[in-house]
Structures are given as structure tokens and as C-alpha cells.
């Protein structure tokens, strides 16, 4: 089952071991949760977009949040990161309650997100994009801004850290280019590197693979794995089940606003409830096109 696990990935092994004995039911408790959410709900008009009773995210793991289109994944993301206000709900980061906090505060507390539609700051250079991510800059205070001696040293240190990150993401040759001139995949990488610049404990990636050409997808997946190996928790949204199979340690499945299943990728993909949720919404066509093995599984599950 885990034959493709890289032997040189202690992060992955740790996550695997930690999650091995976790119950594969919606809302199951994790040994070391970084994020715990309770009764989070959000209604749009008559439609209950999100209604999550309980969910926990294991620290140091890559957790995938999957589900068919319209399942409420992005809305849940928006709620958890403070970009949208829930009707009800409480959630904690490192046991600190964070519901109702402004999104910028959550980012400073170590929960940084990216967006489905890449938000590279087009008319700024790649380096400026990166430097914007650094936290606690004294030069960002308006009164210090005109006194360069108060922030020059810090700026240099941040630039070094940015260079190192850009190197990892193969963007170090582009530092003076406008972000808007990068390719779609490079912008995704930049956004990810910029998020890491904040120094997060958990990064929340909203469809990181969307709009990226297949050739780049593999390297993108590699980068996400590396984030975990550095000790940062990753929670990412994806609607394509195949994408998550290779990299996630744990999968949470949402449908119609609720968490309907949880478990390791292989187990979840065999879950008849999950397959039905996908088939119900997609009428099977996209799924069969994406992966024949799944279709076989679904038949097996139904018999």
C-alpha cells in the first residue's frame, strides 16, 4: 500500500506512524492535532454550504481535503482562515481559540493560506513578493519607513532567507522579474514560497495543482512533500482524488458541506460513501476518465 513511500522521508514516516491507529471515521481524534474545529457552519441563502461537526488536523502531516465540486471545501477554508464569517463554530490552533479572529492575525499566529486563483502580486518583483511575506518588519511601520537605518539590516536578513527559499523553488534566477511575467506554474510556486516566508506552522493550500500543466504537477507535489519534511503541517484542498493519492498522509472527504469520511488515501478511495458522493455529483464520467482503477474499486465496493 505504501510501496511508493520514499525511504528518505522521515516526516512521512512519522506522519504514517502517528496516523496508523487513528479511527477511520469522520471527526476522529488525532494524537497530536494542530487544528481542531467544532460545529462550523455557514449558510448562503437557503443552502448550507458548510456544516462540519468536528474535525482535527494532525501536526506534521499532509492532510488532503477532498470532495466533489460544491462540497464546501473552499468555504470551509475561508472560514477557518478568517476570510469568511461562520454562522456558528469554534476552532483552535495549537489549542488557542481562533474563531472570529481577523485573517491577518491568524497568518501571524502561523496559519497561512494560498488561493485557488493564484494571487501573485503582478506588478511587483518576485523578490518584493517574497519580502512581503516576512513578518515583524519594523520598516512596515509608517514612522520607521522614512528611516532606512531602522530596517536595513532586517531587510538584508529577510532577503537572504527569501533567496534560499527561491532557490528551493527554482525561482532564484527570476528575482527581479515582475511576478506577472511568470508562468502559471511558477506563480503557484512563488505563492507557496511566499507563504513559507511567513514562517507558518500550518500552510493551507487551496487547489495547489489547479491550472498547472501536468509536467509541473510532479515537481509541485515534490515541493509540498518537502514542506512537510521541514516540519510544517500541510492542509490542502483538491477535488481530484488521484492527485491526493500520492502525497497525502490523511484524507478528509467533504460532500454537501459535511465531512463524510476520513482515513488514509487508499482506504478512503474504497469507501462506497465517498464513491457515491463523487459519482452522484459527477455522474461518473470524469472519474472514469481520471482513473479506471477507481471505477473497478467502486464496482467492488457496491457488490
Amino acid at each position: 500500500m505504501h510501496a511508493n513511500t520514499e525511504n528518505t522521508a522521515p516526516g512521512r514516516a512519522a506522519a504514517y506512524n502517528a496516523l496508523r491507529d487513528v479511527a477511520q471515521v469522520p471527526g476522529s481524534p488525532k494524537p497530536d492535532p494542530i487544528l481542531i474545529a467544532d460545529h462550523v457552519s455557514r449558510q448562503f441563502g437557503g443552502l448550507k454550504a458548510v456544516d462540519v461537526a468536528h474535525v482535527e488536523i494532525q501536526r506534521g502531516s499532509i492532510t488532503a481535503l477532498i470532495g466533489p465540486n460544491g462540497a464546501g471545501k473552499t468555504t470551509l477554508f475561508n472560514l477557518l482562515t478568517g476570510f469568511d464569517k461562520p454562522d456558528t463554530g469554534q476552532w483552535t490552533l495549537n489549542t488557542k481559540p481562533i474563531a472570529g479572529k481577523a485573517p491577518y492575525r491568524l497568518a501571524r499566529m502561523g496559519m497561512v493560506r494560498t488561493f485557488q486563483l493564484t494571487k501573485a502580486l503582478s506588478r511587483m518583483t518576485v523578490m518584493d513578493n517574497m519580502l512581503l511575506g516576512a513578518n515583524g518588519q519594523s520598516g512596515e511601520r509608517v514612522f520607521n519607513a522614512l528611516l532606512p537605518f531602522t530596517w536595513k539590516a532586517q531587510e538584508r536578513a529577510n532577503a537572504e532567507r527569501a533567496m534560499e527559499l527561491l532557490g528551493r523553488f527554482n525561482l532564484d534566477t527570476k528575482i527581479d522579474d515582475f511576478a506577472g511575467s511568470l508562468s502559471g506554474g511558477q506563480r503557484k510556486l512563488l505563492e507557496m514560497a511566499r507563504a513559507l516566508m511567513v514562517g507558518p506552522e500550518i500552510v493551507m493550500l487551496d487547489e495547489p495543482m489547479a491550472g498547472v500543466n501536468p509536467a509541473l504537477t510532479q515537481s509541485l507535489l515534490g515541493h509540498i512533500k518537502n514542506i512537510r519534511e521541514e516540519g510544517t503541517t500541510v492542509l490542502f484542498v483538491e477535488h481530484d482524488m488521484d492527485m491526493v493519492h500520492d502525497i497525502s498522509d490523511w484524507v478528509i472527504v467533504m460532500a454537501q458541506g459535511q465531512v463524510i469520511a476520513e482515513g488514509p488515501p487508499d482506504a478512503v478511495m474504497k469507501d462506497p460513501q465517498v464513491i457515491e458522493a463523487y459519482l452522484g455529483s459527477r455522474h461518473g464520467s470524469a472519474l472514469t476518465a481520471d482513473g479506471t482503477s477507481l471505477t473497478a474499486d467502486s464496482q467492488g465496493g457496491n457488490t
Partner: peptide, 24 residues
Amino acid sequence: SPWGRVVKGIREDEDAVVSLGKNV
């Protein structure tokens, strides 16, 4: 200055700057 960088970021995309921990 870094202050100018933040406001330019706000011009480009407010949500992105919020997500990086700035009080836009």
C-alpha cells in the same frame, strides 16, 4: 520602504496581503 511594499501589495491584491499577516 517595506511600508511602501505593503501598500503596493494591497493595490495588487488585498487578500493576498492579508493572507501574509498584514493588517491591510
